[in-house]
Structure formats: structure tokens, C-alpha cells
């Protein structure tokens, strides 16, 4: 069942509680009362179609975003993607790290294994941070500059040359798979860690990793299916405008 504008926001969460974080990223916090999706979007000045597409893409991975999504402004999409980035770096990653640290209280656990896990997760979070920084410092500014240029008078030749030197496809190729390590960590914990006396904390860690993975997959899905096509469209427009000035 897809999420539609007349549903109560509370029912959306009852239907799929994984959406809570996604809803938060639009600035919509708990305490929905009886308000519907469209009412809350209006209150928080979130464009309704944009909210629905993003939430449904997360809710149903086989849901393919509508053509209309390509009409959205890249800057709005980037704002959302940045929200998810800071959610990973400021909340989810430290939280998992915290749980792994808490293994220290379990004396039945071999010291070396705790260190191994923490190290491995440390490597992962470093890679994720590098990847995110690259997007935020190189890719997003390019997309924003492109959008700004197309909305302007398009007379700045210098800016035009600068933009033409880059393409979103370089970024696609650059889109290395940061998820492999997370995948490995799941199997290491599920299959290869010597059975502890009490698995509850490890269960919790696994649960968090599965959640993070689901979120990251969706994040990449949105970049590949929505952001990249929007930018491609802008790049075609840019090339057209080059011809006009020549």
C-alpha cells in the first residue's frame, strides 16, 4: 500500500515505522495528532509531491519515482540528502559505536574480539565519512552551481567553462560501494564471532546495522534514480545554452 496525502501521519508510522527518520528529515517531528500528511506538509512548508515520492521510495523499494519527480529542484533534493548525511554521521554511527563499546562491560567476551570489532567498524565509519565528504564538498556544490547558472542570465562565460569541465557521470563512476564493509560486519557477527554468554547486545548491534543498511540503500536509490537524472537534464540544457552563445 502506498502512502497518500489524505492518510493520517500517525497511520503512516503504524504502517511502516522505519519511515520515522525519513519524516524527521523534512523537519516534521512527533506529536502529529490527527493531522494528515498533506496538512503537516503544509504546516512545515514541505512540497507535498516531493514528500510523497521520497517516503514512498523508502517504503517500497520497487516503487519507481514518477516522471514528475524530475521537475523538482536539485537544491531541494540536496537539502534532503544532506539531512540524511548528518543523520548518519551525527546519530546512527556514534550510536552503533556506543553499542560496540558497551561490549566492554561483558567480561565473558574476549578482549581481542572487542578490539577487532571496534577497529573494523572504525574503518567502515571512516570510509563512509570520506565518501560523504566527497559528495558534500565536490558533487553537491557542482549541482547547486549548475542549477544557479541555469536560473541566471547565463552570461558568465568563465562559470560556463567551469561547469562544462565536470559531469555527473564522473560522480556515478566514483560512487564506490561503501556498503561492502557493513555487509561483512553483519556476517562476522552472525556467523563467526565466538558465541557469547549473552547475545542481546550483539542482537541490538545487528539490528542497528540492518537499519543503517536499509537507509543507505534508499539513499543511494534516491541519488541514482532521482538526483542523477535531474542533473543529466540540467547538463543537456547547459550544452544547449553553450551553442546559443557561440
Amino acid at each position: 500500500m502506498l502512502i497518500h496525502q489524505d492518510m493520517k501521519m500517525a497511520d503512516v508510522v503504524h504502517l511502516n515505522h522505519h519511515l520515522l527518520h525519513v519524516i524527521n528529515r523534512f523537519g516534521i517531528q512527533l506529536g502529529y495528532g490527527e493531522k494528515t500528511v498533506s496538512q503537516l506538509c503544509a504546516t512545515h512548508k514541505v512540497p507535498l509531491p516531493f514528500f510523497l515520492e521520497i517516503v514512498n521510495t523508502f517504503h517500497d523499494p520497487s516503487y519507481f519515482p514518477l516522471e514528475s519527480l524530475l521537475q523538482f529542484k536539485a537544491s531541494r533534493l540536496i537539502e534532503y540528502l544532506q539531512q540524511t548525511h548528518s543523520y548518519y554521521l551525527e546519530f546512527r554511527i556514534p550510536e552503533i559505536e556506543n553499542y560496540i563499546q558497551r561490549l566492554n562491560n561483558d567480561s565473558s567476551f574476549d578482549e581481542a574480539i572487542k578490539v577487532l570489532l571496534l577497529d573494523f567498524f572504525g574503518q567502515y565509519s571512516h570510509e563512509l565519512t570520506v565518501h560523504i565528504n566527497k559528495e558534500e564538498q565536490r558533487v553537491y556544490p557542482y549541482v547547486l552551481a549548475l542549477e544557479q547558472f541555469l536560473e541566471s542570465e547565463r552570461s558568465d562565460q568563465e562559470q560556463l567553462e567551469l561547469l562544462k569541465a565536470y559531469s555527473i557521470h564522473e560522480y556515478e563512476e566514483d560512487h564506490e560501494n561503501v556498503e561492502d564493509k557493513l555487509f561483512d560486519l553483519k556476517n562476522i557477527i552472525i556467523k563467526y564471532i565466538p558465541s557469547p554468554k549473552d547475545s542481546r547486545l550483539l542482537n541490538l548491534i545487528l539490528h542497528e546495522i540492518f537499519e543503517l543498511e536499509k537507509d543507505l540503500n534508499n539513499h543511494q536509490h534516491i541519488e541514482d534514480l532521482i538526483l542523477v537524472p535531474i542533473v543529466e537534464k540540467m547538463e543537456i540544457e547547459l550544452r544547449k545554452s553553450t551553442k546559443r552563445t557561440k
Partner: peptide, 11 residues
């Protein structure tokens, strides 16, 4: 094993 990375194989 279901492990893809060198770091994972090392662990």
C-alpha cells in the same frame, strides 16, 4: 563466507 572486503576477511 559472505565476506567481501579484505578487512572483513582479515577479521
Amino acid at each position: 563466507l559472505g565476506i567481501k572486503t579484505v578487512a572483513g576477511l582479515t577479521v
